[in-house]
Write a protein that binds this DNA or RNA. Structure first.
Lengths: 339, 339
DNA sequence: CACGTTGATTGCAACGTTGCAACATTGACG
DNA sequence: CGTCAATGTTGCAACGTTGCAATCAACGTG
């Protein structure tokens, strides 16, 4: 049915090995021979059998990208960018989603679940930094998100503390004084929420303020943002500004503000984190902290590629920090502009 | 480094073939032998080498899922469900996105791009139905979206005409008379937009109405919806209702309505199509046509699995239609309810 | 002219697995 | 007690590719 190296070789009148040299650019081949082989390849519609190639070479050409979820705007966009970046370096991406389940994260890391991959980029949810390296065994691994600086794993992350501090400063600069946060989480493997909470408090402290409330959430989705803002609006003295640790939380909160007739930004300034598409088109448009997602994806794939092809000797673990910026939009008082 | 069948066999004191029988459940194995082998597998941390297995069996265990984009809410959610459904049947999904580029769709179908897969589920954008089968060659293929009924390919789709008719009826039932549509597209491989336009007109015709305007768009994203509604609001007699062929278009339109002080639903009823998460939390929440996405994913994977493992003799092409329903929300006059 | 050097091509073996067919063992049955 | 079937186990070969080392021809150099 499908043509093999052997068939091409027979048609072109050369050895199997020479055909292999042509199709994989392995060794020098005389121009005339190359042309003859290429013609035979064309005629038979030959495609290399990747299973055989993988078996022989011990590599699959696949990298795993493990995220908690694909359908959310943030991870969806990130996954798309990672796929692009990987393709640019000749990788094929195997996208896995864990739904935050610890056992699934573990099984993907230790290789008992999913296909064989040459390396992995993971945005961990439940697994603690310490467990990541040991579970992965020798598998090249790049972690998205912050880790202890003394860890032995490559990671790519924002300066979460600095970013949250910038967010707090932004709200302060808009004249707000009664500022709350939505999005704290406890008991997770990664410490992102804690870092943002820390930065948030720092930013307020600089202005001599302290948080009027900090609301815990179970996840970072809209429904939780809605619930949390209802809680805050029921306080005797509700806040005049809220920093949500994700745009989705903020959009849920925005919806509740509309329901209850609370004007944004007049009565309540609202800002999010992530810069998802929906926030740009919300009414009012959502102020947010925008991480440089392209750079996260690009650097992560680059880092992983170096690990896979790099020297066997252990390179030192890298800690790559990508920039972010605050995008001031209508929800914190920027003038209304057509999208 | 990693253990092979051979190593396990040596440790357990049986032949390589018997270990293979144990790990792949291929043949009857005595309980005592099985236990001894399993113990050795455990001790050595043996994992089957998939490349070798694939080479031997001629199957990869991978199915390709090809969509125009991953980061959009509709395709993101669909991709997630497809991955779940595939996992339930033992497949691993290779997610590819084409960005609507015709040449990339073609190369993915004919196998010159991407990894080798046992079958493919594709949501085509640029490629015409006629070309799909010929490009795929013998590769089992399931198409998402409507095709000519006489085609030779399995497909899973909504009744797009019926769904759009239901949408039009909904707007009519709300007392609207000056009804427009946003989302027509020309020059694409798939005919979804045409089908929805057709159903939309049918629904109006039943009520003795005809469209006050039908706006073409370049894609189905928010920015185009925003542009299109600006166009409609500039008409001498603007519509009192608009049916958008996607929720994203509708959300873009919703934003422009807010910008221009047009009240939804009082001045303008607005509805979308797809039932994406954002629509539920928009203010006002967005009336939409909800396809049964779980069923699309489940049926598509089921259909493909049957193709791959089914009899060699050509099964007749299947045409699977999944149900949909109109979700009436605030943007067409449902009372405001907390999310 | 002998010799080393370079470039092009080749055959062989191996990657780790499973299909196939053969073999050994046991129990059932006439 | 001999025969047959069922059950459990095995060795061999093959899937399609590439690493390795060997071969061969052609060429420039001392």
């Amino acid at each position: 049915m499908t043509a093999r190296l052997k068939d091409v070789a027979a048609l072109a009148g050369v050895s199997v090995r020479t055909v292999s040299n042509v199709v994989s650019n392995a060794a020098a081949v005389a121009p005339a021979t190359r042309a003859r082989v290429m013609a035979a390849v064309e005629e038979l519609g030959y495609r290399p059998n990747l299973a055989a190639r993988n078996l022989r070479q011990g590599r699959t050409g696949l990298i795993g990208v493990v995220v908690p979820e694909i359908h959310s705007p943030y991870f969806g966009a990130l996954a798309g960018l990672l796929i692009d970046a990987a393709q640019g370096r000749g990788w094929t991406v195997l996208l896995e989603r864990t739904g935050g389940r610890a056992d699934l994260e573990r099984r993907l890391l230790d290789g008992s679940e999913g296909h064989q991959v040459d390396g992995m980029i993971i945005s961990p949810w439940s697994t603690s930094p310490a467990d990541l390296a040991s579970l992965a065994g020798g598998l090249p691994l790049v972690v998205l998100g912050e880790l202890e600086p003394d860890g032995s794993i490559d990671h790519v992350a924002l300066d979460n503390v600095g970013a949250a501090r910038d967010a707090a400063r932004h709200l302060v600069s808009r004249g707000r004084r009664r500022i709350a946060a939505i999005g704290l989480q406890s008991g997770l493997g990664h410490g992102t929420a804690e870092l943002r909470a820390e930065g948030f408090r720092q930013g307020l402290r600089e202005a001599g303020l302290s948080p009027v409330a900090e609301v815990e959430v179970a996840d970072l989705h809209r429904a939780e943002g809605a619930r949390a803002l209802r809680e805050l609006l029921a306080l005797p003295e509700p806040p005049d500004a809220v920093f949500c640790f994700s745009d989705e939380l903020a959009l849920g909160a925005l919806r509740v503000a509309a329901e209850q007739g609370v004007r944004v930004p007049e009565d309540l300034a609202l800002m999010g984190f992530d810069d998802i598409e929906d926030g740009r088109f919300a009414a009012p448009s959502l102020t947010t902290v925008a991480p440089d997602r392209e750079q996260i994806a690009e650097r992560a794939v680059q880092c992983l590629t170096e690990r896979v092809f790099g020297p066997v000797a252990a390179l030192p673990a890298r800690r790559i920090v990508v920039p972010h910026r605050v995008l001031a939009r209508e929800s914190t008082g920027a003038s209304v502009t057509p999208v």
